[in-house]
Design a protein around this nucleic acid. Structure first.
Lengths: 253, 253
DNA sequence: GTAATGGGTTGACTCAGGTCAAATGACAGT
DNA sequence: ACTGTCATTTGACCTGAGTCAACCCATTAC
């Protein structure tokens, strides 16, 4: 189908290609970001044993859809996703962008059906973690339980951040916050804080930030004029991180 | 201090006053909404034994504040709260309104510090649940573990709903969604779906919905003119629930 | 009673971001 | 290279919600 390491073609490859080696938490270079954080070797092997399925998801394909029965939590091993919810009338809201080391599917726990769609924005690879077996295991491994709770809580806190952004920030602040957030997450994964490729369209960024695509485009252009960033299509170079931070700090009114 | 049952004065009192009877999950009329859902009598007693502290929080007082060390999850036994986050510049975003049977404090798990403020909007009473002991117990009681995970997941899903609201709904839709949500939650607690008192100011509603207080006020007035609701200060009567639902259904553009 | 205070309402005006439209650029398929 | 498609940019204009200001209404303090 698709060439194994195609997904990583436009991201600075600091690690060896993942597709050739046997996938397992214990030799996964994301283990410090992902679910197994803090586990002993033995515990990690027990977690490993849960993860029977690792699957590629091609760009544009859904990992899961609204209404689908909930069974797995998914750990992104490589790639990039968005989650969105659709209103009956066709409008849709992107609720998040997820990258390697992050979990998908937590929304499905409460009703045992997924409540949003998860779509790959580039060819990706995910570990399928059977949720009910994860619960069992986390009854036995305290560290795992604690970390899982932290991940869920972190998601809640992240969501509060998005509410803040949507509820009271102006265009410039939203875009600055968005870029800084991406920068920081890329950094945590060993990539450059200042230079990366956006995986999503202007429209998807707009949907996430509560803006129209034209507004996003204009904000990028303005930031470029002001020397804060250099944009060319999806390639972004952040030239002035403090400058972006300042946009959020100064109360404009 | 404050008279025991003052908090419930403007809510239809379908149950006996709570303050006189010994507070415990097993005789709490909220147990079907709250954490102990689905537990056996024995299990419920074990949960009970964790909850050493039940405290009143007076209207306007904080249950916890940003930065405070995280120790407890709080179950609201009676009353009404808001949670909000403040930006350095003084702006603040209300991230939620919580009522009896709901949990507060989940935001604190990830960093072991609270990341928002929880403020009582009326005299309230909360059960303090030591989180780390709750984790221990939920390693022993599968039902409890499962239900706790569902509650956290539900919070994530709720947050996605708010994002949708903030990201792509117009004023009328936001207000209609807000009223319908309150109505539905009051109903679940045995109160009238159509008539209730708002516990929060127009400004707090506005902050939650990403609107200015004047905009909220105008929307209420418009709904009243259209015969959808009757508002008098904080007293709301919903006259046309299907009408409100339709506002959200019809795509206005 | 009167005054003070803090919500809440309403009107007139403004402007940030949306809408509509046209042009350009990137890229895949042939 | 040629074509079609889809993403992006940019300009001109419009409008929904914000701003500012005045006033009203309840409640509490005196």
């Amino acid at each position: 189908m698709s060439p194994p390491s195609k997904a990583a073609k436009d991201t600075p490859p600091r690690e060896t290609p993942f597709a050739v080696i046997k996938a397992a938490c214990s030799n996964c270079n994301l283990r410090e970001l992902c679910l197994p954080l803090g586990l002993s070797d033995d515990e990690m092997m027990r977690l490993d044993s849960l993860i029977s399925v690792r699957k590629r998801v091609k760009r544009g394909d859904s990992l899961y859809r609204v209404g689908q029965a909930f069974e797995y939590i998914y750990a992104i091993r490589a790639g990039f996703f968005k989650t969105d919810v659709l209103l009956e009338d066709g409008r849709d809201q992107v609720t998040g962008f997820q990258m390697a080391g992050e979990l998908l599917g937590l929304d499905g726990i409460c009703t045992e059906r997924h409540t949003c769609n998860a779509v790959a924005l580039e060819d990706s690879e995910v570990c399928h973690i059977p949720f009910f077996r994860l619960e069992s295991l986390s009854r036995e491994i305290q560290t795992l339980q604690r970390h899982f709770h932290k991940i869920m809580s972190r998601e809640i806190v992240r969501d509060h951040g998005v509410m803040t952004l949507l509820g009271m920030m102006c265009v410039e602040e939203r875009i600055a916050a968005f870029l800084l957030n991406l920068s920081q997450r890329f950094t945590a994964r060993g990539f450059s804080p200042a230079e990366f490729n956006l995986r999503m369209t202007r429209e998807e960024i707009g949907s996430y930030l509560g803006l129209k695509l034209e507004t996003v485009s204009r904000a990028f252009s303005r930031f470029q004029e002001e020397g804060l960033i250099a944009v060319q299509q999806r390639h972004i170079r952040i030239l002035d991180i403090p400058g972006l931070k300042q946009i959020m700090a100064k109360r404009n009114h």
